[in-house]
């Protein structure tokens, strides 16, 4: 199918989705929808590099930086998130550069790469906790609310519809970025990197540079997603928004949905959020932790039995059927 043919229905669907808030759905539904969109965006951002074998546990850092920089600038100096967010994204990109460039030059790959990026995540989490005078430490922080709660200047909205549209825009932006990476980076070349780096280098592919580019894009989008998440939740916490836990959560959702397909991470977001909600409703708050035990087991099962995720499996089935037909 041509790209145009593929994007036409997607565009129509997006437009239809954009109209949803106008019908005034219940607040709970809107809350779920916003979360799904924002997390989809973040998981997509991770997969943009993850699918090339660059498994990062550093995205907790990018997310945290994207969240905390605008919130801190707003609380301390009254700087608008319109400026704070780009600064946060910039800082995330810089930290990705500091980690990524030497890693790729020195061919730090596989679990070494995962562990080095994990160090970055820990630096972010611990720095936030250490700066407890301004960040509130592990108790978390709240961006100062504006009177009335609605302000474009502060990017704070009472009406969830705004965040829905922001989330929708970001999500589509994420999918577009995925496609753009596919195209501009001569995807076969990148796949070659994931498969066999020496072979890729031998046919003259600038491995280091390509890897760095996807890493920076991925970090920037993740930070952007973190910023939007912070503005929406109006609550930031280093333990849940930076650190190894959130990094693994991102990896889990991306793998479960399927990190090799454009819509895989989105499916992963829907799956994890619906599962969390279902468990919350089923068990209430009596069983704190129940959701994560199930996530943990699922993650193991997915990696063992379905490493390409749900969307990957569906694609495989479709291809098998297409081959038969």
């Amino acid at each position: 199918m041509s790209d145009r043919g593929r994007f036409l229905p997607l565009g129509a669907a997006a437009l239809a989705l954009a109209l949803v808030p106008l019908f005034g759905p219940p607040s709970y539904v809107m809350h779920m929808a916003v979360q799904i969109l924002l997390w989809s965006f973040i998981y997509t951002a991770w997969s943009i590099m993850g699918r090339f074998g660059l498994v990062s546990l550093g995205h907790g850092a990018f997310l945290g930086i994207g969240m905390y920089v605008p919130a801190l600038l707003w609380n301390l100096y009254g700087v608008t998130p319109w400026l704070g967010i780009p600064l946060g994204v910039l800082l995330a990109v810089l930290s990705a550069l500091v980690i990524g460039w030497p890693c790729f030059r020195l061919k730090v790959v596989g679990h070494y790469f995962a562990l080095v990026t994990l160090a970055l995540t820990e630096v972010a989490r611990l720095s936030i906790i250490a700066a407890r005078d301004i960040t509130g430490g592990s108790l978390g922080m709240t961006p100062k609310p504006v009177p009335g709660g609605h302000s474009w200047w502060a990017l704070q909205f009472v009406d969830k519809a705004y965040f829905f549209w922001i989330g929708l825009g970001l999500w589509l932006f994420g999918l577009w970025a995925w496609r753009a990476v596919d195209r501009s980076m001569r995807n076969p070349a990148l796949e070659a990197i994931a498969e066999d780096e020496t072979a890729a280098a031998a046919i003259g592919i600038g491995v280091t540079r390509l890897k760095l580019e996807v890493t920076l894009i991925s970090a920037a989008l993740t930070a952007l997603g973190g910023a939007a998440m912070g503005q929406y939740l109006q609550y930031l916490n280093p333990e849940t928004h930076a650190g190894i836990g959130i990094s693994l959560q991102i990896v889990f959702a991306a793998i479960a949905g399927g990190m090799y397909a454009m819509l895989g991470p989105t499916v992963g977001a829907v799956l994890t959020l619906v599962l969390t909600e279902a468990l919350r409703i089923a068990f209430g708050t009596t069983l704190i932790g129940a959701a994560n035990t199930i996530y943990g087991v699922l993650l193991i099962l997915f990696i063992i039995f379905m490493p390409r995720g749900i969307v990957g499996l569906i694609e495989e089935r479709l291809r098998a059927r297409g081959a038969k037909a």
Partner: peptide, 28 residues
């Protein structure tokens, strides 16, 4: 053992699932 022949990063991530599991089991 079931994934010993796949890329090592898979094993790291699978034990990441174990990390989630053990943490939340302890909480539970």
């Amino acid at each position: 053992a079931p994934i010993l022949d796949t890329a090592p990063i898979n094993q790291l991530l699978a034990t990441g699932g174990l990390l989630f599991f053990l943490q939340s089991l302890a909480t539970l």
